[in-house]
Write a protein that binds this DNA or RNA. Structure first.
Lengths: 204, 204
DNA sequence: CCTGAATCTTGACGTTGGAAAGAGGCAGAA
DNA sequence: TTCTGCCTCTTTCCAACGTCAAGATTCAGG
């Protein structure tokens, strides 16, 4: 019978607690401001406690990235399912979900797509990132089912690059410095529709 | 009369030397592996010497980013000038220059477009990044001179996002994992032509 | 209750970025 | 020239970092 609360089992869920405090810390201080000790401090444990659950600080960051990719995939799917307008509508919706996740978790998003995180290359990280790419590829190919494999690949490249590039530049302040959030959303949607039209035109 | 070599004036060009060793170190170890002390070590000075030339490590990184943007602008212009095919050819050429710079300086490129560097927001950094954006905008607008201001802006967004997104994903290993360099260049050029066609079609 | 393994704490080591104080070297004034 | 003041660099110090080793605590199963 596990003790319900109070001091729940040594700590009990330290791995989860560290992932949670780590994620918050990441968004708060950015990648360069992220420290393992502060992460442990927020979880209420000593500075060496994380070592048992994560081999190194990079290992923790990799775990955060894995969870980020999983959440990104879920956000894309959810938004695509909500969309109307057939395959093209789903493609645009998936892009909306992608951008919304990035806008809501900018530091995590940056970590996920930084070569530092990629340098870890744990199997879990590779798999999680692959799942997102498969989702993107499927959405594009559903729009142009009769195109050749090569054309499909080029359109997958194109769609993924447009969406990723726009939101990345936006989050870095390279796009729409003083524009309102509303105006920026309009620019994002406009980009998504131009992207979708190009996929349809070139692929169809 | 300045002493020619040997121990040239205290150090003489420490700021330049630090920028050079810093840039090399950045590409070698990545942003997270970058340390001020190693940077000083490679320049042959004590670990506190950089303090006089750069207020902090972030200040040094900002300087590297500024120089990166200047070099990026030069690479874009050079490639555009070399291109044939009028305004559309220049637009594609500029994209080639952009991608070539990023591929040749991946860590620096990542630094330039990381919100960490942007958090510095020195006037020089803002100006250098602005210059690159102006170059991009001019190249797009030259292709669609009769379009409305709004359409022009959307196409500038679109062109910049496509190019930036593709090379970013490529450098992060999210595109073309095991493809040959030759095949990747073909995919990049294919993306650039799809981008240019869309600009012409939507804007014209 | 007892024992072994899992979990966490304490303490230490080497490294980092930065501040403070001092030494060395240059330029202009005398 | 010599002197004086400033610029540049070194040395020393500090708190904080990531990681390791050793000890303490707590759980699970016999």
């Amino acid at each position: 019978m596990a003790r319900p609360k109070a001091q729940p089992y040594h700590h009990g869920q330290l791995r989860e607690a560290l992932a949670a405090s780590g994620r918050a810390l990441l968004e708060e201080k950015g990648i360069r401001g992220f420290t393992l000790r502060e992460c442990a401090r927020r979880a209420g444990v000593s500075h060496a406690a994380p070592a048992y659950h994560f081999a190194s600080i990079d290992d923790l960051l990799a775990e955060l990235a894995v969870r980020g990719f999983q959440e990104l995939a879920a956000a894309m799917t959810a938004e695509a399912d909500r969309a109307e307008g057939g395959a093209t509508g789903r493609l645009v919706g998936q892009g909306v979900g992608y951008m919304a996740f990035a806008a809501g978790n900018p530091a995590l998003f940056q970590l996920m797509f930084s070569r530092d995180a990629n340098r870890l290359e744990t199997p879990a990280l590779t798999a999680a990132a692959d799942a997102v790419r498969k989702l993107q590829a499927a959405a594009v190919e559903a729009v142009i089912p009769h195109a050749s494999g090569e054309v499909k690949q080029r359109m997958v490249d194109f769609a993924g690059a447009s969406v990723h590039g726009f939101i990345s530049l936006l989050l870095d302040g390279q796009i729409g410095g003083k524009d309102s959030s509303r105006a920026l959303k309009a620019r994002g949607l406009s980009l998504l529709s131009a992207m979708a039209e190009t996929v349809v035109r070139v692929g169809g």
